[in-house]
Simulated assay, not measured.
Amino acid sequence: MQAVPPGATIGILGGGQLGRMLALAAARLGYRCHIYAPEADPPAGAVAAQVTRADFTDRAALARFAASCAVVTYEFENIPVAPVAELAATVPVRPGIEALRITQDRLLEKRFCQQRGIATAPFRAVGSAAELDQAIAELGLPLVLKTRRMGYDGKGQAKIAKAEAAAAAFAALRSDELIAEGFIGFRRELSVVLARGADGRIVSWGPVQNIHRNHILWRTYAPARLDDRLRNDAERIAASLAEGLEYVGVLAVELFDCGDRLLVNEMAPRVHNSGHWTMDAAVTSQFEQHIRAICGLPLGSAERLCDAVMENLIGDEVKTWPALLAEPNAKLHLYGKAEARPGRKMGHVNRLYPLGQAPQL
């Protein structure tokens, strides 16, 4: 693959904070970014060379967007596949369409893991109330009923603890494309963020541990304190999934640590919240690495320079910015969002510690 030279324009589908941080990383390498997003004043637009505001199904707007770009990537996976596939006929799209198709559908994702010989929670496809009853009979209770697409930060899912609650849960999700997953009593949640280059080389930042509040990631501890067996298993699983997808770019794999084994929870075909710590604590951040990968550049080192704890700033927590700036070991990153709403990620702070000296969970 011929490298995309600095000075070229990178197209980014989506204008949120991930697109913003990708555009900032691209600028440091000499690239311009063109943001394509349906909303007005997207956070990424403030740091990009160009912005197109249009729906993801607007084929004429997408064609004009493609004509301006040397390569296109996406900052989130909830984008219709068909128009992106048309885009890929005229400009390289990385990661590829197959990665987008599989990772935006929880059922396809679980089946893909099965094909790779990678364990997940037991699951069943659910398209009707009768199929939900059958899933309960086969998986037992409790279980989690989820929409196959569009769910994030706890949205689009319901825990069912009693059979009599099943009908209400099915009706509340308002979809006939659902997946039922057996409930997993895990010890902790881990994730592995890695990059795979166009040449197949994989570079990983290693497993980290994630803590959630109200279904939203609150803190990430880097590194996760694991024995060598679990650490190696986590790395192997993530690499296998990236290879199976013939992936180019940064991929995140979320895992449940069940003590004696790891189960894949889900994948994200993009830079990921649990990789934000790399901006200040690694030789190469996940954002720079993604730009390197999609442009066909050599991947950078993922060596960890120090330990880190990343904390998301949700809603009004962003108002603590003066105190955060006063912390000697804190690096503050704000996303430029005008309104602090409950549950909205407004920024994050990376607290840095000497190697081996981060707080223990």
Rank of each mutant, 00 (worst) to 15 (best):
Q157H: 05
K159S: 12
E138T: 14
A121T: 13
G117W: 02
P142W: 09
A121M: 10
L173T: 02
E181K: 13
E138S: 15
D133R: 15
L141F: 13
L139Q: 04
I179W: 05
M150G: 08
I179Y: 00
E138P: 04
K155R: 14
E181N: 10
A158K: 14
L139W: 04
A125K: 02
F123M: 04
G185L: 10
Q134A: 14
I118M: 09
G151L: 01
G154K: 08
K159D: 06
K146A: 04
A167Q: 08
A130Y: 01
A129N: 07
A119N: 12
G156M: 01
L139A: 13
G185I: 00
E138G: 13
E131T: 11
I184V: 15
A172V: 02
Y152G: 06
A125D: 07
E164Q: 09
A129R: 11
P142H: 13
Q115S: 15
S128G: 12
A130K: 05
A137N: 04
A171K: 09
G185V: 11
Q115D: 11
F170I: 01
A166H: 00
I160E: 06
F183H: 15
L139P: 03
L173E: 07
A121H: 06
A172Q: 10
L173V: 02
F170Q: 05
T147V: 14
G140N: 09
F183K: 09
L143A: 08
L132M: 07
A165I: 01
G156N: 02
L139Y: 05
L143C: 07
L143E: 07
A171R: 11
A172C: 03
A161Q: 10
K155M: 04
R148K: 13
G151S: 02
I136F: 07
T120C: 12
A158R: 15
P122S: 15
A167M: 04
A172W: 01
L143F: 06
F183W: 14
L178H: 04
A161W: 09
A171S: 08
A166Y: 01
P142T: 11
A135K: 06
S128V: 03
V144L: 01
I160G: 05
A169D: 06
L178G: 02
D153N: 10
G117M: 05
L178P: 01
E181V: 06
A121F: 03
E138W: 00
R116D: 03
A180S: 09
E131R: 14
A166T: 05
D153Q: 09
T147C: 14
E138H: 12
R116T: 08
A167H: 06
A137V: 03
F186G: 13
E138V: 03
G154E: 11
T120P: 09
G154M: 09
A161P: 02
R187G: 10
Q115R: 14
A169E: 00
A158C: 12
V144H: 05
R148N: 12
D176S: 15
E181M: 07
A166F: 06
I118F: 01
A130M: 11
A129I: 11
D133H: 15
L173H: 03
V126H: 05
L178C: 02
A119K: 10
R187P: 01
F170A: 02
A163N: 12
I136E: 06
Q115M: 13
A129Q: 14
K159I: 11
I179K: 00
F183T: 14
K155W: 04
K159Y: 10
R148Q: 12
I118A: 09
K162D: 13
